[in-house]
């Protein structure tokens, strides 16, 4: 920035002061809903560490990171659909369905790479189908993905006949247990996906069009952006990421199970809301939901380590999400 433009910026919008280089990487002041997740995470860590000094221990941090990997990936996918003003209620079921397809490939004696490919392709196809119905069929996101939720979990039961398929494989074992320092391969995969998603959202034409379609579908259409195609793309992306998350899920459990995984859906939406992504669409970050996912994982882990009953945890998650929504109300 030159001195002149800085002057102009200061004159035109007194509430956006010109910032030195490093500050550009932080969210704008006044948009502190995006700070809710990192701030809440720090607060939680302080509280839990005070109550239980072992909370920040090497082993526990490693466990928390590993537990957050799947949620991070699902939340990243969810961020894109929410950024267009939609919501993907089927993420967790799509993941279950993809995991079952992984198990089908594994049971048939396929190479592990092919099983992974099958899982991702299943998620992609299911997401694309939903995206096509939403975009081209002009049916509300909520309804289509609610139906998708039911269909994917049903299909998982049909295909697996309700039986889990045990997956024992050297690659999958290394994926779930291997690590660089305290950072496991699964978390590493999740972080790579998050970084790529950030680049996609903020440094490509596609990302700008996603935000434009969510901010004002009318304006986007008027400038020639095909909102239907954007819808198709974001649900395909969300489905694909659910397929990738399925690989991690199978690695973590050591089996492909037709379980409902409902808490993953609730937490993925919660992480996105905590991350300051506007549910109305048009405004999003990737870092926010990633911190949101970490916060939710830390919350669950901390409560467990304090001996709080499992039954209270959904109550705590729900309360935190509503609190975050409350905070974001005051950002304007």
């Amino acid at each position: 920035m030159t001195a002149a433009t800085r002057q102009a910026t200061a004159n035109q919008a007194p509430d956006t002061p010109a910032s030195p280089g490093w500050k550009r990487f932080l969210p704008e002041s006044g948009r502190w809903a995006e700070w809710a997740a990192p701030t809440g995470l720090v607060a939680l860590v302080i509280v839990f560490t005070a109550l239980n000094p072992g909370f920040l221990g090497y082993g526990n941090v490693q466990a928390m990171l590993a537990a957050s990997a799947i949620l991070i990936i699902l939340s990243v996918g969810q961020t894109f659909t929410v950024a267009t003003g939609g919501i993907d209620l089927s993420v967790a079921s799509t993941m279950t369905f993809s995991a079952i397809m992984f198990g089908v490939g594994f049971g048939a004696g396929w190479h592990i790479a092919l099983c992974c490919l099958l899982a991702v392709a299943s998620g992609l196809a299911f997401g694309a189908l939903q995206g096509a119905i939403i975009g081209y069929g002009r049916i509300t996101d909520f309804i289509v993905t609610l139906g998708g939720l039911s269909m994917a979990s049903g299909l998982a039961l049909v295909v697996s006949d309700g039986q889990p398929q045990t997956v024992v494989d050297r690659f999958m074992l290394r994926l779930s247990t291997g690590s660089i320092g305290p950072v496991g391969y699964m978390v590493l995969a999740a972080l790579v996906i998050a970084v790529l998603a950030h680049v996609l959202l903020f440094h490509t034409r596609f990302g700008t069009h996603v935000l434009a379609a969510g901010g004002s579908a009318e304006a986007a259409t008027a400038t020639g952006i095909d909102v239907r195609r954007i819808k198709l793309a974001v649900y395909t992306l969300s489905g694909t990421l659910a397929g990738m998350a399925a690989i991690l899920l199978v690695a973590r459990i050591g089996a492909a199970e037709p379980a409902a995984n409902t808490q993953f859906l609730l937490n993925a939406v919660a992480a996105v809301v905590l991350g300051g992504v506007a549910l109305a669409g048009g405004r999003a970050t990737i870092a926010g939901p990633v911190f949101g996912a970490l916060l939710l994982t830390a919350l669950t882990n901390g409560l467990t380590s304090l001996g709080v009953s499992q039954y209270y945890q959904p109550v705590a998650v729900g309360a935190v999400v509503v609190l975050a929504a409350f905070v974001s109300r005051y950002q304007k």
Binding site: T204, R205, T208, H209, L211, A212, G215, S216, E218, A219, A220, A222, T223, G224, I225, A278, G282, R283
Partner: peptide, 24 residues
């Protein structure tokens, strides 16, 4: 220039100026 201006409020001025004509 449409009556409702066809601007996306959550995007910046430059993003709106280059909407769907982004330089890459």
């Amino acid at each position: 220039v449409h009556q409702n201006l066809a601007l996306v409020e959550d995007l910046t001025v430059w993003q709106n100026l280059f909407l769907n004509r982004e330089l890459t």
